[in-house]
Amino acid sequence: MAAAAAAGAGPEMVRGQVFDVGPRYTNLSYIGEGAYGMVCSAYDNVNKVRVAIKKISPFEHQTYCQRTLREIKILLRFRHENIIGINDIIRAPTIEQMKDVYIVQDLMETDLYKLLKTQHLSNDHICYFLYQILRGLKYIHSANVLHRDLKPSNLLLNTTCDLKICDFGLARVADPDHDHTGFLTEYVATRWYRAPEIMLNSKGYTKSIDIWSVGCILAEMLSNRPIFPGKHYLDQLNHILGILGSPSQEDLNCIINLKARNYLLSLPHKNKVPWNRLFPNADSKALDLLDKMLTFNPHKRIEVEQALAHPYLEQYYDPSDEPIAEAPFKFDMELDDLPKEKLKELIFEETARFQPGYRS
């Protein structure tokens, strides 16, 4: 834990890192770190609560700039109880001085990944967590956004079992017609939660990839272990087919990539493993919904509104309290091709509203 900075004593240090967030945020305490930044909790002297502050230093890398800009653009436009918001952003007053960006968010005690390492969940908890994931996802999908990296560590939890989806750095506007060349190379989302079509096709992607990830998360809540822990690309596919069985001819016809289709045709026939054999203690309604989410063919996979209306979630289902976005989200430009200098300018502009004396 960093010592509390005395008023006016300059930035606090946390594990050798400068955290320049005073005077409003003090009493910093280390939480963890990701690929390009550290997260601390801090005391907000204005709202009198502890908050989470993520320090991001992305400006050396085009990919990190892209992810940072995506996350900020999306989260500043989203407003939903099951999606983490941005409360404040701290950065230098000029673009030349801006080396880091500090993002202030609600402090959540833990995440689903940490929880599943230590606790076996009751059916009631599984049901409530799944409902909140789908409630947040309904809003995301209504904005025409794909999260693309749903996994237990991106689901934040607090002691009252509130759940918030975080990390929109890989999110995209849904565009089933656009052929994202190089899709697989830039697709760094965790393999275990990846839909089979991501490994088999490169053309376009749809909201059904997020539903697949939610199915993987439900299976993990039922058993405290990942359902498809593939060691590499082909191993991942083999794990999936080992449980779902061989795809039907109709399902194979959806695979545009001939090499991928021929690979699947070359494999020995596998039978589907019954879900109640894998999860003998699970609620039968939970397994019915799991089956509809972990469907090989993305066109037959359940959609988020149908999933919310499934009998497993009937005690929570309330369409009048499951809000959607006001308007579909649009990125003005494809960020993939922009140089990091341009992305830095866009991050600077996007964060201006939090600067003292800002006038829109």
Rank of each mutant, 00 (worst) to 15 (best):
A3Q: 13
A3D: 04
A4K: 14
A9Y: 11
A9G: 06
E12S: 04
V14M: 08
V14I: 04
R15W: 01
G16Q: 08
G16F: 13
R24M: 09
R24A: 13
N27H: 08
G32R: 05
Y36S: 10
M38W: 09
C40R: 11
K48G: 03
V49M: 04
R50Q: 10
V51M: 12
A52E: 02
K55G: 06
S57T: 03
Y64Q: 09
C65Q: 14
C65R: 07
R67G: 09
R67F: 12
T68V: 07
T68N: 05
E71K: 04
I74W: 03
L76H: 14
L76Y: 15
H80D: 12
E81R: 11
E81C: 11
I83P: 08
G85W: 15
I86H: 11
I89R: 10
R91Y: 14
Q97G: 12
M98N: 13
Y102C: 03
D106A: 12
D111K: 06
D111N: 01
K114H: 06
L115Y: 14
L116T: 13
K117Y: 12
H120L: 00
N123W: 07
D124Y: 00
I126H: 08
Q132C: 08
I133W: 05
L134M: 00
R135H: 05
Y139L: 05
S142N: 15
H147E: 04
L150A: 12
L156I: 13
T159R: 06
C161T: 14
D162A: 09
D162N: 01
F168R: 04
G169C: 00
L170D: 05
L170V: 09
R172I: 03
R172M: 04
D175N: 03
P176A: 04
H180I: 03
G182V: 00
F183N: 06
F183A: 12
A189Q: 05
T190D: 03
R191A: 03
Y193M: 03
A195Y: 07
M199S: 05
S202D: 04
G204I: 07
T206V: 02
T206P: 01
S208T: 01
I209Y: 02
G215S: 02
L218G: 01
K231T: 06
K231F: 07
D235V: 01
Q236A: 06
L237V: 14
N238Y: 01
G242H: 07
G242E: 11
I243R: 11
S248M: 10
L252S: 12
N253Q: 07
Y263T: 07
Y263H: 13
L264H: 08
L264N: 06
P268G: 14
N271R: 07
N271Q: 08
V273H: 13
N276K: 01
N276A: 09
L278N: 08
P280G: 08
N281T: 00
D283H: 13
A286Y: 15
L287P: 02
L294F: 12
F296K: 04
N297E: 10
H299L: 00
R301E: 02
E303M: 13
E305C: 15
Q306V: 15
H310T: 10
P311K: 11
E314G: 13
Q315D: 11
Y317K: 15
Y317L: 10
D318R: 14
P319M: 06
D321P: 15
P323I: 15
I324V: 12
I324H: 15
E326F: 15
P328V: 08
F329I: 00
K330F: 14
D336T: 04
L338K: 09
K340R: 00
K340M: 00
E341P: 10
K342N: 00
L343T: 10
E345W: 15
I347K: 01
F348V: 08
T351A: 02
R353Q: 13
R353N: 12
Q355G: 11
R359P: 10
S360L: 01
S360E: 02
